[in-house]
């Protein structure tokens, strides 16, 4: 994990100082979780960088293509692949997941490190569709929401981003402060789906 500082020499502990603070991941202690035919795990995707092109979107798109080898995603889509991915993240905004942003991107818009602000989970398994159908007001069926599609929507009452990575695989992003709530809500939905047999 890149998240947070690994050491601090300024925090006192007894007569000495704390030399090493261990960073906690957003889902530490709560994931992985498997109920019935659905499995929820934490994803460590590396850097999360918000890209908001200012003015001409094409300039940012060209720079992104050149530096990271992927297109700037259109609304409801994602580009790239595992390890270096870019997902549409709202109006005029995309999220670069994986590599640290190349310096060339800074010239073309707002480039903000939000690695610590979001938590990333993976929901997979034959029941994944049914679990999300209980919580998400958007149509995530395979016929409507294909691999690589990525939307901003809600999981129960939480703002979320959902991307389909495969036939039975969804990547879910929520604010880091909501990580516990996401697990709670998904756990309830997973149990409810499993109880139907």
């Amino acid at each position: 994990m890149l998240k947070c500082a690994t050491q601090s020499l300024s925090i006192k502990k007894g007569s000495g100082y704390v030399v090493e603070l261990k960073a906690k991941t957003p889902f530490e202690g709560t994931l992985p979780l498997t109920i019935g035919q659905a499995k929820l795990t934490e994803l460590d995707v590396g850097h999360l960088t918000s890209l908001s092109p200012l003015g001409d979107e094409k300039a940012m798109a060209t720079a992104l293509e050149k530096a990271h080898g992927m297109a700037l995603p259109k609304p409801n889509r994602s580009t790239g692949k595992e390890g270096a991915r870019c997902i549409w993240f709202g109006r005029g905004e995309a999220l670069l997941m994986g590599p640290a942003p190349d310096a060339s991107l800074y010239k073309h818009g707002a480039v903000v490190d939000i690695s610590d602000a979001w938590s990333v989970a993976l929901l997979e398994g034959p029941a994944a569709d049914d679990v999300l159908a209980r919580l998400v007001p958007a149509d995530l069926r395979d016929s409507q929401f294909k691999r690589g599609h990525s939307i901003r929507t809600q999981v129960f009452h939480m703002a979320a981003s959902i991307t389909r990575l495969g036939p039975e695989k969804f990547m879910i992003l929520v604010f880091r402060s909501m990580a516990g709530t996401l697990v709670h809500d998904l756990k309830a939905a997973m149990a409810a789906v499993a109880s139907r047999g």
């Binding site: 609304p75 409801n76 109006r91 007001p137 958007a138 939307i151 901003r152 929507t153 809600q154």
Partner: peptide, 11 residues
């Protein structure tokens, strides 16, 4: 116009 047809809950 950007996201497509969505449920009222999102608005």
């Amino acid at each position: 116009p950007i996201c497509g047809s969505r449920d009222r809950r999102e608005f």
